[in-house]
Amino acid sequence: MEGILHALFAPGFGHSEPVRTAVLAGAVVALVSGAVGVITVLRGQSFAGHALSALGTLGGSAAFLVGITPLWGFVTSGFIVAGAMELVGTQRRSGRDVATGLVLSTALGLSALFLYFETIVNSTTGVTITILFGSLFALNGITLPAMILLGIVCLVLLALLYRPLLLSSVSSELAAARGIPVRTLGVAFLMLLALSAALSSVTVGTILSSALLIGPAATALRLTKRPAVAMVLAGVIGMVSTWVGIVLAYDSYRWPPAGKGWPVSFCVVAVLFTVYLLTGLGSRLRTARVRQRRAGAPVTGQPLPTVRQG
């Protein structure tokens, strides 16, 4: 909260140190999240992505308790939780979501306990809100090099695993037939997801980091069908949205209701959501034009199942 106030009262947008850090950190996070997010959306693991960032709360609260930097708390807890999800989960998609939910709620319960200890020790509740919502403006320069390093690690891992990941998200049977260890790959991807979730958790807060993971990826996949292009596009969309969000947040202290700045997290998410809705509108208009030809209109609106036999 103090970080925001500090940023607001800095002399100018370009000269403000927190703003410059925020712009840089936002760019790193957006690029990594966009690339990882495309694979996440293709694999249908949005919930796992959200859970891993929300679970950063656990690591964050534990880190506060122990007294280390939240970033490392996020990373460690993310790894543990990703492993637990894979252990509990089944291969089926519905079972996987239930397992994710169970692990998520358990970990949140644990973090409630840690935060309780924290409030006993320090008698503050502001910590919860900072962990949940984070603030780009509240970053300090010390975490930035570590973040860039982690971001590069993420991207390199993703580039290495790109093809098997893509194949196994299309069909795990096909992947297994080619000798890809599907389960190990699944764990590896969850770890990767945890790493990128940890990165974004520090910037926009644990809960809102899902926005940078899913929003740009979902938008990009609406615009292009090619995964590699979508990954780059998602990174760019995320980066630009973050910057627009930062500018909006910086300007917002002049907006109603008087004198109080709008949180950066909200501004970024609002921009992302608007872009997503607009692309949806665009693609719907396009399909409507195609459909205007003579057609046997389906009653249900469901696509005709394609006849497929061996």
């Binding site: 249908g44 949005s46 919930f47 949940l132 809960i207 809102l208 909200f266 992302l272």
Partner: peptide, 19 residues
């Protein structure tokens, strides 16, 4: 996809909450 929309709706509303 349900899950993508769910994630987006969730973060949007949480964002409003933080506002």
């Amino acid at each position: 996809r349900h899950d993508v929309v769910t994630a987006l709706a969730l973060v949007m509303l949480l964002g409003a909450g933080s506002l």
